[in-house]
Every structure is written in C-alpha cells, then in structure tokens.
Amino acid sequence: MRVILLILVFVFGLMGMLAPHGHPEFSWQKLPIFDLVFGLLGCALLILFSEALGKYFLFRREDYYDEP
C-alpha cells in the first residue's frame, strides 16, 4: 500500500510539473507541486495537532458525565 501511494504521489507530482498552469492569481499557485506538499505536511500537522489536543486537554473516561 505504501509503495502504491508513493508511486501515485510521484506520478501526480510529475503530471503537475508537466501540465501548464492557466492563470496563476497567487504566487503559490505557480508552484507545480504545491498541493502535494500542502497535502503531505497539512495532513501530518492535523494528525499531530489534534492528537496532542486530545491527549493533553480533551480525552475523558467514558463515564465522565455520569459521575456525580
């Protein structure tokens, strides 16, 4: 699965390099693999941030609201 995903990432990255960009309105749109990097980092950031938030602030026992 990891290998398949790696190949896919590579293929779509390459396609991004080759495909012409229409009319970039923003500087980051000129980067052909911007969404690739954003997806990779954004996803890791989201997972780590929310798990940390859960661990330090949000997780409670199942019967938390039933306690007197």
Partner: peptide, 27 residues
Amino acid sequence: IDTLQMLSASALSVWLLLGILKPHEGI
C-alpha cells in the same frame, strides 16, 4: 491534478502515521 496531488500526498502521510490515529476508549 491539484486535487489528485493533495489526495495522494495526504493519503501517504496518513499511512505513515496510522499508528498515531489508533482509536482510544473514552470521550
């Protein structure tokens, strides 16, 4: 292409971090 890039890259990222995502008991 942008959508496919985003989806495949974040899928790779999830697959690497799947252990961290393990569900917990509790609320």
